[in-house]
Amino acid sequence: MNLTSEQAAELRTLAADRHVTADVALRARIVLWAGEGRRRKDIAELAGVSARTVDRTRARYAENGVAGLVERKRGGGKDQVPPRTRGRVIALTRMTPPPDSGLSHWSTRTPAAYLKRTEGIKVSFHYVARIWREENLKPHRSGTFKLSKDPAFAEKVADIVGLYLDPPGGAVVLSVDGKTQVQALDRTQPVLPVTFAATEKRTHDYVRHGTTNLFAALNIATGEVVGECKPNRNGDTFLAFLKKAVKPQAGKEIHIVLDNLSTHTTPDVKAWLEENPHVHFHFTPVGSSWLNQIELWFGIITRQSIRRGTFSSVHVLVKQIRDYINSWNANAKPFVWTATAGDILAKVRLVQTAVRKLLNNNAN
């Protein structure tokens, strides 16, 4: 089971919350242990439950996030919450968090806190979790669609998807980005168990040996990847990698898909582009990194090679990344992109229409 840093933080908070039951806290720890890559039988032994309970807990989290771990009340009446409040929770969940919230996505606690702060509406995170279950809302899923606030969203989508589906004849399309702060983490032997509530929690010693920054360029026609690790990520290191990525494509028109980081538009980068008119940048819409195919590859290398690896130094981590890239290129295949710009924009319109209807209904 793979967990993002935000998901792991939310689960740790739940496991340590004095206001939740021991069963809920234990379920949170089971998911955390699964996210660490522990075996099913080891988790069952640590938690003092059956292997079937471990599977059920993981499935509940995969289906509904933290909402799936919260107790389901049996019998009795429902909380007396006004219908408008329920509607506000649903509408807020289906929207991208407002910029002033500083959030990338909603957790069960953040909508409750946001509604209390901005509208004076008081609900518990248990209530939010129940609504998410009943409405089958899953904002924790990385695949949840995010609305971009980029005013040129439609034009950028059409531009980039056009490159994917029908690249210019004879041209090369590269998907470029960097994965920052890849951590060299040494997982040592388990330490002595620590008593936690009614269970024993065995943990690992984690020794951190530093980080590296992985730059990568995916050739969308062949699936081959050019990658390089750098100690930092700035305009100079990006430009150095860019020169390396385009070098094998000498004499061709090169189209590069990348995001809106300031390191991609430094004066030196702009000067280099002027000196190399055969290289063209295509920027993804703001908040829409999912449109960049290299993000798919970053997800694959993280799951298959980095996340559960043990690295005694940054040098060992870098070697692992290089070996993985060489192995990938030995049998490289391109990703199959099927969604047209029209498909994506139609989905955006549907989501926007649904949100507007919910907001209008709740205002009346």
Rank of each mutant, 00 (worst) to 15 (best):
T4Q: 03
L11D: 02
A15D: 05
A16D: 14
R18I: 13
H19R: 15
V20G: 01
R27C: 01
A28E: 06
R29E: 09
I30V: 14
L32R: 03
W33D: 09
G35A: 06
R40I: 04
A44H: 01
V49H: 02
S50K: 05
T53V: 11
R60P: 00
G68I: 00
L69A: 01
G75Y: 01
G77D: 08
D79M: 14
V81H: 06
R84H: 10
T85I: 13
T85N: 10
R88L: 08
I90W: 04
A91W: 06
P99E: 10
D100S: 13
G102L: 05
S104A: 12
H105P: 03
T108I: 14
R109W: 11
T110H: 05
P111Q: 06
P111K: 04
A112S: 11
A113R: 12
E119N: 02
E119W: 02
G120K: 05
S124L: 06
S124G: 06
S124E: 06
F125E: 13
R133K: 02
H140F: 12
R141D: 10
G143Y: 13
P151M: 09
F153S: 03
A154R: 07
E155K: 14
V157L: 09
V157A: 08
V161R: 13
V161E: 10
V161G: 07
L163N: 09
Y164F: 13
Y164S: 10
D166R: 15
P167S: 13
V173R: 04
D177E: 07
Q183G: 00
D186P: 02
T188D: 15
Q189C: 08
T195V: 13
T195Q: 14
F196V: 15
T199V: 13
R202Q: 15
A216M: 09
T222H: 11
V225C: 07
V225N: 02
G227W: 00
G227P: 00
R233I: 04
N234A: 01
D236Y: 02
L242R: 03
V246Y: 02
V246F: 03
Q249S: 10
A250Q: 14
A250I: 12
K252W: 04
I256M: 03
V257Y: 00
V257F: 00
D259Q: 04
N260C: 06
S262V: 08
H264K: 06
T266P: 01
P267M: 04
A271G: 04
E274H: 09
H278D: 11
F281A: 05
F281H: 08
F281L: 14
F283M: 08
V286D: 05
V286C: 09
S289N: 06
W290N: 05
Q293E: 15
I300S: 09
I301Y: 01
I301E: 00
T302G: 10
R303N: 12
S305W: 12
I306L: 15
I306C: 03
R307P: 07
R308F: 15
G309N: 08
T310Q: 11
F311N: 01
F311E: 05
F311I: 05
F311S: 02
V316K: 14
L317F: 03
Y324I: 08
S327L: 14
N329Q: 02
N331K: 14
P334L: 06
F335D: 02
T338N: 09
A339C: 11
G342H: 15
R349V: 08
N362M: 12
A363K: 11
N364T: 10
